[in-house]
């Protein structure tokens, strides 16, 4: 197995970084500003009940709902644009320019609209994550080879066959690239959404602990947020490898 050896350099670097952090934090000795990694871990353990049973489920449901909406919306728009050139002309520039709007700065307005409910956070997550999914899937649908399309035509294939037998398989690798980016962004989206208005969630909890000058308790939920991002990324990677088996055998 090469994967075990492959992560060794990265693991060593992280270990070195944590040791230096630990040493520096103990040297500075100001727990509320720079808590050592061991302090964060013990805080995580200490706060395990509220963190794991209250705030983690709240954030996770925002991420999962947000991503689900993004995938449906993003793939739907991508397919629609690929079917109709006039839809592409109308929507594509809007989608690109929508990314120029600082969505994070817009977040307060969603709190006004949706209140402190889960939906204000879901909207922020969706707005951040649907872009990479839409654009990648759309590019993927466009990447289908023209020669293969003509070959299918000579076999008597219609639009439906070309879509399912050529365009979708061509788009799949692009879709997964978009999804991987979206998954990491979704954690940011959920956390920011929670800062602005929430009664629960890891982002909310982290910010609340800041006001109490409890450095370790600010970091503890961030550890969990990172873990969510990493786990989701690995999950997508596994699904990708499974459905794109043909790519793995080099």
């Amino acid at each position: 197995m090469t994967s075990g050896k492959g992560i060794l350099p990265a693991a060593l670097l992280i270990a070195a970084f944590l040791i230096i952090w630990e040493a520096a934090a103990r040297g500075v000795n100001m727990m509320f500003i720079l808590p050592p990694p061991t302090g964060i871990l013990s805080k995580l353990w200490q706060l395990k009940e509220p963190l794991f049973f209250e705030h983690l489920p709240a954030t996770l449901s925002i991420i999962v709902i947000g991503l689900a909406i993004s995938v449906i919306l993003g793939v739907g728009i991508a397919v629609w644009m690929s079917i109709s050139p006039s839809v592409e002309k109308a929507i594509y520039p809007i989608i690109i320019s929508s990314q120029m709007i600082p969505i994070i700065a817009l977040a307060p307005i969603f709190v006004l609209w949706f209140g402190y409910s889960i939906w204000s956070k879901v909207v922020v997550t969706v707005l951040i994550t649907f872009f990479p999914i839409t654009v990648n899937t759309f590019d993927g649908l466009k990447s289908g080879s023209k020669e293969l399309k003509e070959l299918l035509l000579t076999m008597g294939a219609g639009k439906k066959e070309i879509f399912f037998k050529l365009l979708i398989p061509s788009a799949l690798p692009h879709f997964y690239s978009g999804l991987k980016v979206a998954v990491t962004l979704s954690v940011i989206g959920a956390a920011i959404g929670e800062w602005l208005g929430a009664q629960a969630g890891l982002g909310y909890f982290s910010r609340r602990m800041m006001t109490q000058f409890d450095g370790a308790a600010v970091f503890a939920p961030i550890v969990l947020l990172s873990a969510i991002g990493i786990v989701l990324f690995i999950l997508v990677k596994c699904i990708e490898n499974r459905s794109l088996k043909w790519r793995k055998i080099e």
């Binding site: 080879s145 020669e147 293969l148 070959l151 299918l152 035509l153 000579t154 076999m155 008597g156 294939a157 037998k165 050529l166 398989p169 799949l172 794109l244 043909w246 790519r247």
Partner: peptide, 26 residues
């Protein structure tokens, strides 16, 4: 379209399909 069998210059097999799936395409 669909009346003749056309074999293109490059094999144009679909990389995501197995050999039997490629042959089965028509």
């Amino acid at each position: 379209l669909g009346q003749t069998g056309y074999m293109p210059q490059h094999d144009l097999l679909m990389p995501w399909r197995t050999i039997s799936e490629n042959a089965a395409l028509p």
